[in-house]
Design a protein around this nucleic acid. Structure first.
Lengths: 136, 136, 136, 136
DNA sequence: TTTT
DNA sequence: TTTT
């Protein structure tokens, strides 16, 4: 069976990092993918989907180091669904993309950095491309 | 931005078909993807994810014709999220894979058909492969 | 940078296996992907592409064990190009898909086996799904 | 059968454009994908693959308008192989990725444009995202 | 060279 | 809720 999600989009906020009692690091963030299309009346519409993403261990460390609000990221992983109960005992369902690989395509330019930081992204993102991390 | 989901899995039930007042046909079904792995104690575990899938128009017609409970299907599409309210007014979120393409890899063998029905699947699935339907 | 190839197709022949002096095992095989389309005159045409595939180490072992001529396989990997010289010293170029993951979708039914052998494929292919082999 | 290639990489040169006698436009360009890995001695190595890409019709027009040497592009398509004969009558084989969709991730910054042009890329690339062009 |  |  195959379960693969590929996203290219931007982070809506900095990743939230947690370290579990086991020592494993987790990073969560949400990524927007936008799509433009012409509606029936010929107007351009934009539709944005926000995806919840989770990454573990060394990917989490790299998310912490390199990803910030606005980063443009290529990510692939798998689509997972979890059921849980809220405080009122209502059943809830959460869908997350569990990332297996990501790569920064540009980093968000902040106010202090007027230049094009995308040139530094490959170096940063390059840190991801050790043999262990790559699916191939 | 890129938003692509690729699944190979089995249908949990026959597709549910609806025709909207606009005449557009919709088919919904859920697909299971299973993954096996060894847990810490060395035992094999299987983890199944159930994905809600929606397909429109000619894909819906083909889903109606060719897909049944148990069909093994290759599907790709995009990941979408919708918010809505239940009867109590509680906010709910639904995640669906909107299919852009699918192909039957084998059809479920039913009781009357002791033989290998996968031979008929390519012919059936073959109906999908006109130039219009294929992304390429 | 991303370089990913996804194929679902059939093997044209049994894999060829080699063990290098280093002890690393390599398997090579070619996979056909066929596409049907209507040409301008409305006739159905079929176009087949033959892809050279190479897999290494445990994937090669599994290719040897489970893949045979006619097997229907899901495979993903990366697209690679090599230059070399033939005996006459002419420059040659070879393109291969280096597989990172594969999964048998059905095995070829041979003459002795009139039944549906696809039922055995998942068990066989299931051997692939240890945590180490899966990209996720 | 599935035959899909996904690349994120940079153009090695401006696209070459041709218009066939039929009026159909074709654009050809080559895209580099690089991968870094540590070799046995612990040194970082970089390996670059150059892929020949062909796009047709409106994709070719957009390639002409928006792609230049150095552009970072997401592209997907299918892997094709053609046989032909060179002038000496020797058999030759050419492998090309026939693009079905592409999207500019940043455009090459030229000398006159000291700023970050990636901000304009979405607008440019946005032209691609009409419903007709997108596989979904 | 596969398969339907 | 599938399948092996």
């Amino acid at each position: 069976m195959i379960n693969r999600v590929t996203l290219v989009g931007r982070l809506g906020a900095d990743p939230e990092i947690r370290t579990l009692s086991s020592g494993a690091m987790v990073a969560k963030f949400s990524m927007a993918t936008s799509e433009s299309y012409k509606d029936r009346s010929g107007e351009w519409q934009e539709e944005t989907q926000w995806h919840d993403v989770v990454v573990w261990r060394n990917l989490a460390e790299r998310a912490q180091q390199y990803l910030t609000k606005g980063s443009l990221v290529y990510l692939d992983g798998k689509l997972t669904h979890r059921k849980w109960q809220d405080k009122e005992g209502n059943p809830r369902k959460t869908t997350e993309v569990v990332g297996a690989f990501f790569r920064i395509l540009d980093s968000k330019r902040d106010g202090n950095d007027s230049g094009d930081t995308s040139s530094s992204a490959p170096a940063a993102g390059g840190g991801m491309e050790s043999e262990e991390d790559l699916p191939f």
